[in-house]
Design a protein around this nucleic acid. Structure first.
Lengths: 220, 220
DNA sequence: TCAAAAGTGTTAATAGTACACCCATGA
DNA sequence: TCATGGGTGTACTATTAACACTTTTGA
């Protein structure tokens, strides 16, 4: 039927870099690899592409299996195709990254998979080339957040400007001047004050803001 | 040995978007698909990943088969994984783009494959999702050329500033003010005048420039 | 002599950066 | 009353954008 029979076939995996923001730091969800090779090592959330699903769908399925979440900001990062990247068998991996709100996912599910959050700036040893993947994704998010309000995907619905600034600082790995930051943000049109005051984070209380429209796209 | 046996395997192809610059326009090298499905349709340069090579190496091999070129600026663009993207069988494609100098490749080889250059702004119908791939790559080059001297890969060794400007305009799809362009370029440190004069393009003659160091990297 | 491309500066607007103090409140 | 985080404005610098005329020369 096709002329492809003479070509080899490969396992194709999907690895998901699930980013969250907690305790003032950008975090990644990892778990212990449940099978050989590398069983017990720390690993990104992953799985294998099935015949009846696109690679994008596969990524969404895996994200849902681990977090219960649908309709999440998720982007393809890159394909990793070194011959020996998986010491067991040849596996070509297509990597996605997702941004989720750590207060709003199914923790029962993630605990079931022994998943836990680790600080992006203090990653433990990860199996295979997973560390490279995270670094690359982190750089890409840094580029993106300068132009697009992707912070909406990482923050709770209502947030203070201080929290937003901490998010930016954590993603960019720099410190930002408070006045410059607040001016730059107020010139954007995607954030608005709600009139509500958060009394938890300070005695004086801080205005709570929200994103006008949440950017919850699965592809772009 | 591994726990992967229960998972399906897939054909993995590599498609190469080979960009060149000729007659003042950004061009792409395409050819007629030599096998079913879609035999005879216009297609990007592609091939299948082999067991003994990484996906990156596969892209390099395919580029070399069609152009004779080694050591070319080449970057991974994305993986395309829709289930029905190839109407014959399930094929997951990993796409690369390359920038080459149209005066400096093995034309015998490319003619052997019925390859020809087409204008990026007037693409003919391409098979499968190849058109999307080209558009995406084009956007990415546009981003890149604002910051990196990738033009060196598309131009002859010596070139006039007018030609360089035409290249930028063609990639960015905008017209650029001549004085602003020349000032911006002269502030960069990667281009230098050679002292030679090109008499072919104008009566008056134009200074020929060259890139100080050619960025011929295969990965970045 | 004239058509055709080469070459050349100034000004205005915008964006980014640096920097320090007062405010409101609960404990 | 004081410690804590919230909130605010101005001056400087760098970057980008707009804009038009003179030069050279081969046909």
């Amino acid at each position: 039927m096709t002329a492809y029979q003479s070509y080899p076939q490969f396992y194709v995996s999907v690895d998901c870099i699930i980013f969250g923001f907690a305790e003032g730091h950008l975090k990644v969800l990892i778990h212990q690899r449940p099978y050989e090779p590398g069983m017990g090592e720390q690993s990104l959330i992953g799985g294998f592409v099935q015949t009846n699903e696109s690679v994008d769908s596969s990524a969404k399925r895996i994200l849902k299996e681990f977090t219960g979440l649908d309709n999440v900001y998720m982007q393809q990062l890159a394909a990793y195709g070194e011959v020996e990247r998986d010491p067991g068998e040849r596996v070509i991996s297509i990597v996605y990254y997702a941004l989720i709100n750590v207060d709003n996912y199914d923790q029962t599910l993630s605990e079931l998979h022994n998943a836990k959050w680790v600080d992006v700036d203090h990653l433990p040893a990860l199996c295979f080339d997973h560390r490279d993947m995270v670094q690359k994704a982190r750089r890409k998010i840094g580029e993106t957040i300068k132009n697009e309000p992707i912070g909406s995907n990482l923050l709770p619905r209502y947030f203070t400007l201080s929290l937003l600034q901490t998010l930016y600082e954590s993603i960019l790995g720099t410190s930002i001047d408070k006045r410059n930051f607040r001016r730059a943000i107020s010139e954007k049109d995607y954030i608005k004050p709600t009139g509500m005051i958060d009394k938890a984070s300070s005695r004086r209380g801080a205005t709570l803001y929200e994103f006008k429209e949440r950017v919850d796209k699965a592809e772009a």
